[in-house]
Computed example of a mutant assay.
Amino acid sequence: MRPRAVVFAYHNVGVRCLQVLLARGVDVALVVTHEDNPNERIWFDSVAEVAAEQGIPTLTGAQQAELHEAVRAAQPDFIFSFYYRHMLPVALLALAPRGAYNMHGSLLPHYRGRVPTNWAVLHGASETGATLHEMTAKPDAGAILGQTSVPILPDDTAAQVFDKVTVAAEQTLWRVLPALLAGEAPHLPNDLAQGSYFGARTPEDGRIDWNQSAQQVYNLIRAVAPPYPGAFTEINGTRLIVARARLAAPGALPSDLPVGLHVSDNAVFAQCGDGRALRIHALQRASGPHEPPPLQGESQIDTFIDTFVTPAELAQLLHSCRHS
Rank of each mutant, 00 (worst) to 15 (best):
M1A: 15
V6S: 01
V15G: 08
V20A: 04
L22W: 03
V31E: 00
P38L: 07
P38E: 04
E40H: 07
E40S: 14
I42E: 12
S46N: 13
V47C: 05
Q54N: 05
T60E: 09
G61F: 11
A70S: 09
R72N: 06
A73H: 03
Q75W: 05
F82K: 01
P89Q: 13
L92D: 11
R98N: 08
V115P: 00
T117S: 10
L122H: 08
L122D: 04
K138Y: 10
D140S: 11
G142L: 04
I152K: 00
D155S: 14
D155L: 12
V167D: 07
E170G: 04
L173D: 03
L181A: 10
D191T: 11
L192P: 06
F198N: 12
A200M: 15
P203D: 03
N211L: 13
V217R: 03
P226I: 02
P227S: 11
A231S: 14
I235R: 14
N236C: 09
G237Y: 07
R244T: 08
P250D: 15
G251R: 05
L257G: 02
N266I: 06
A267L: 15
F269E: 07
A270R: 03
D274I: 02
A277Y: 02
R285L: 15
P289E: 12
P289H: 10
H290K: 12
H290C: 12
P292A: 13
P292H: 15
P294M: 04
L295R: 07
Q300E: 12
I305R: 04
D306P: 01
P311C: 01
C321M: 06
H323I: 08
